[in-house]
């Protein structure tokens, strides 16, 4: 194919711009999103752990304060409820995080597809 110097130069300019573009994209994009590979079971276990950890800390705090302040069993009762609420808060935060990550991945997938 006989090459036309003018279109060759325009082509080169395009390729240079593209190379610069991928260079920048390579530096910012990629990475993260591997968490999306976590299966439903993985997410389930994660949320269960979040909830149980809150309750466990609440129960632990309640037992400790009860024995220290001699208020058995009232603080245990209160802190078990507080712990449950904290566990729910953990779950909500994790869910929000996962949701945000999912949206981000989706957006990334969409821009990649374009």
């Amino acid at each position: 194919m006989p090459s036309d110097p003018e279109s060759d130069l325009a082509d080169l300019e395009k390729r240079l711009k593209a190379a610069r573009g991928t260079g920048e994209a390579g530096r910012s994009g990629s990475g993260s999103g591997r968490e999306g590979a976590a299966s439903g079971a993985g997410i389930g276990l994660r949320i269960a752990v979040d909830l149980v950890a809150g309750v466990a800390v609440g129960v632990g705090l309640g037992l400790w304060l009860d024995s220290a302040l001699d208020t058995k069993p009232w603080l245990l009762l209160v802190f078990t409820i507080v712990g449950f609420c904290a566990g729910l808060l953990n779950v909500v935060r994790t869910a929000n995080q996962l949701e945000a990550k999912r949206k981000e991945d989706e957006a990334a997938a969409r821009t990649n597809a374009e």
């Binding site: 080169l12 300019e13 610069r20 260079g23 530096r27």
Partner: peptide, 23 residues
């Protein structure tokens, strides 16, 4: 590597400019 890539791209850009000038 990033410097080399930037450098090479810069050189290519410069050469492209020169080629356009010559043209």
């Amino acid at each position: 590597r990033q410097n080399k890539i930037d450098d090479d791209l810069g050189k290519a850009e410069e050469l492209r400019g020169k080629a356009a000038e010559i043209q």
